[in-house]
Design a protein around this nucleic acid. Sequence first.
DNA 1: TTGTAAGCGTTATCAG
DNA 2: CTGATAACGCTTACAA
Lengths: 351, 351
Amino acid sequence: MSTRRATISDVAREAGVSPSTASVVFSGKTPVTDATRRRVLDAASALGYTGPDPRAASLRRGRSGIVGVVFEEHLGTAFLDPVKTLMMDGLSEAVSPLGAGLLLLRDHDPTESGTAASLTTAPLDAAVLIGCSGHLRESLDAVKARGIPVVVVEGDAGDDIPRIVLDNREAQRQAASHLRALGHRRVAVLTLPARAGWQAGWLLDGTAVTIDVTRERLAGALEVYPDAPVYAAAGSFIDEGLAAGRVLLADPSHRPTAVIAQSDLLAAGVIRAAEEAGLRVPEDVSVTGFDGIVVDGLAPYELTTLVQPAAAKGRAAGQAVAAMLEGSDAASIRFTCEFREGNTTAAPRPA
Amino acid sequence: MSTRRATISDVAREAGVSPSTASVVFSGKTPVTDATRRRVLDAASALGYTGPDPRAASLRRGRSGIVGVVFEEHLGTAFLDPVKTLMMDGLSEAVSPLGAGLLLLRDHDPTESGTAASLTTAPLDAAVLIGCSGHLRESLDAVKARGIPVVVVEGDAGDDIPRIVLDNREAQRQAASHLRALGHRRVAVLTLPARAGWQAGWLLDGTAVTIDVTRERLAGALEVYPDAPVYAAAGSFIDEGLAAGRVLLADPSHRPTAVIAQSDLLAAGVIRAAEEAGLRVPEDVSVTGFDGIVVDGLAPYELTTLVQPAAAKGRAAGQAVAAMLEGSDAASIRFTCEFREGNTTAAPRPA
DNA sequence: TTGTAAGCGTTATCAG
DNA sequence: CTGATAACGCTTACAA
């Protein structure tokens, strides 16, 4: 306990074998006699040796078994989003057979001193960037410079970087078409933030939307309802949807008969706003969501929504990483959302 | 691109300095002439060298800059809990000045093959175990054997392991006392799961409660209301609270005038169940929560609850890790919850 | 301020 | 099946 920790050579010496043999006993990469194995293992436990030092092993092997996951938000914020959480789940599942773990990283944390573990100083085998917009590009450059494989989820990082994306536009158009088929003419759109740091408010024609997901889903809705009023929330939360819903449903004379929300949480908030205003869903207002997550506490409503394969996205990212680590190059993947009709949409009341 | 990556020696040679000088330019640990620094930096960019290889550096230094966070649940499940999320936030903040990042780990994943990155194979400087009950003890042994510093949050790992805990019992008693002071006599308790894998149901006297948090909070409530009926939910979700609330409030003749819920999410569900049953909160039923998180979508209710310093817990864990890494030994810390009166508790209706 | 030298603890390779 | 050898790429006393 007091002296330095035992190394594999100590164990080898104690067991009367060579270091390489001892190493092989632990890695299992080459057959070893049972007797030898036992001697080595006994020596190890006698010396309190618990296995090869991962640091040395990773230097030698050139692999650390660590995949970085880079977020552009505060970690707490990222995990507030059920879709990201599911995605992490899929990702963790997919890198696990690789023997890899996930290291949480922020793109560039302005509040922290430069000492923080980062893309540049962490022993990463690969990196997954989540939602590549804005300064995440800097992270991208850092990683590319290091020459480690990168995959981008829900973002565009240039042609040479595999990306995992959704058919946001087409999917959202499907929901809009569904509403039109039901006969809705006055429809409002409630979007996710238009850009980083966005404050909730109407999205006028000229406003630039820099967040890819928001822009694409919006485009899909506008294909069907080109003149729909558009309100952009400040984030994907029920309370944001509630606040926005109050605005959208405020004026009885201009009230939309349906609201297309860009996330299930926003949709849930709109439903609450409708209830609050004495409107019934779907009789008085139809509401569609996006994501297909389980919104805790929303029962008995079942959202009409686009179900995105969030966990599959994560898994795909993990598999892409695995492929690149093997030297093959990974293709970008575009996932398709599935339209699911719930009980929050119906034909509008006859005027 | 085709040949092997440049090393710091290559850079040094190119710059006409020694490897140690080049190293120092990157680490900044020793003063270097501006001219020298420039030469080295130029050589580096000429060779496409992006900085020291973290794997080699960590072997040499004996530090990897990685702190493992060990959960006993699926990652997706863990992050569904806002308290854990906040805790992670605090933790990540506290280890950041250390230059460390957080590696997500599961205790022992039965579904994965043995290859997964784990306590035993990941290059960890330290580990934080979350909620040490059940098999998390195995993880504990693994880490202790490796001789790396460990901290346990919300769990008991024996006297030699620093732990970060809450005054669960006292805090819960405070909420119960508040209800008694208001005049409540028929009070029901809605707890978190009694053990891993628990199905929602009544908790009878003899039932063993193996989850520390559940047991302690329950004990606090029972100090004030020893005869209260106790129902244990299957998890901390609004929908669980809703289901449990339906049971608790079902029978008008035995209906409690107040429900003590062990989490804010459960409390939110009970409130929904009350609304559903045509009862008003707090006029007909009082409800208390625990955690003090923001429950998305609960407005206009403000829970009467115990606010736990979730982020501070994470920070404390991080600081404990930092201390141990410096050689000093970290003390266990017991945090105190703050009672916060909202608008979900009031005196019971006169019978 | 810069250079020299000696590892850090493993594991891949190849020969026996 | 086992052993000798040679790196992996860097950091840090210590000396100059």
